[in-house]
Amino acid sequence: MGNNFGQANDKAVQLSILRTALSLVETAEEGGTLVDMPTSWPDFFEFTPGGKNSMG
């Protein structure tokens, strides 16, 4: 959430995620197909509902 397509200004990763999503409409064999992206988040990342300043 907040980074569905990667980090700010990371055009390569944004494009890769969008390409992967779009390619599924041609390659998916069944509905509900999930694909894990090979990209790793470069920094520590912890999802906090409501954002970093919320009660978490």
Partner: peptide
């Protein structure tokens, strides 16, 4: 107010990749 959109404020393509 339900998610962290700090990055999206810098680059909307993080969540809405219209440039891509």
């Amino acid at each position: 107010s339900y998610y962290d959109h700090t990055d999206a404020e810098t680059d909307i393509n993080c969540i809405f990749p219209l440039d891509r």
